[in-house]
Deep mutational scan, measured.
Amino acid sequence: NSLAEAKVLANRELDKYGVSDYYKNLINNAKTVEGVKALIDEILA
């Protein structure tokens, strides 16, 4: 998966839960796919 794909999928996942734009910005600023995954795990914990 590319970083861009990971960000799109992460933001879709956040949308399902009604997560605020603050967290979407964190996702969009992530530098690695692993970073995106770690943020998602933390946000949805």
Rank of each mutant, 00 (worst) to 15 (best):
Y22A: 09
Y23L: 07
E34I: 07
L14M: 06
A45M: 12
L14D: 00
I43E: 00
L9Y: 04
I40R: 10
G18P: 05
L39F: 04
V33Y: 04
A38P: 00
K16W: 04
I40E: 02
L44M: 12
K37M: 13
E42F: 14
N11R: 09
S20Y: 04
A30Y: 01
V36H: 00
V19M: 14
I27P: 00
S20A: 11
R12T: 12
A4V: 10
R12E: 15
A6K: 06
A10G: 07
S20M: 09
L14P: 00
K31V: 13
A30G: 02
L39E: 01
L44N: 04
V8R: 14
D21R: 04
K7A: 01
E5Q: 12
S20H: 07
D41Q: 14
N11I: 15
N28M: 12
E42I: 12
S2L: 13
T32I: 01
L9K: 15
N25L: 07
V19N: 06
D15V: 06
Y23A: 06
N1W: 09
I40V: 13
V36C: 02
I27N: 00
N1F: 10
N29E: 14
N28W: 10
G35C: 10
N25R: 07
L39A: 04
A38E: 07
A45D: 07
A38K: 13
L44E: 03
Y17R: 11
N1K: 10
V19H: 05
L3N: 01
L26C: 08
L26N: 02
L3S: 01
I27E: 00
E42K: 15
S2D: 14
V19S: 07
L14E: 00
L9S: 15
E42V: 13
A4H: 11
S2M: 11
E13C: 15
T32V: 01
I43G: 03
V33A: 04
L26F: 05
S2P: 12
L44R: 14
A10W: 02
E13Y: 15
I27F: 01
I40C: 05
A4G: 05
G18S: 05
Y23P: 01
L3K: 00
E5M: 12
K24T: 07
K7Y: 01
V8I: 15
K31M: 10
L44V: 10
V33L: 11
S2N: 12
S20T: 10
L3T: 02
L14H: 01
A6H: 06
E42M: 14
S20C: 12
N1T: 14
K16Q: 08
K24N: 03
N25W: 08
N11S: 11
N1G: 12
S2V: 10
Y23Q: 04
L9Q: 15
N11L: 12
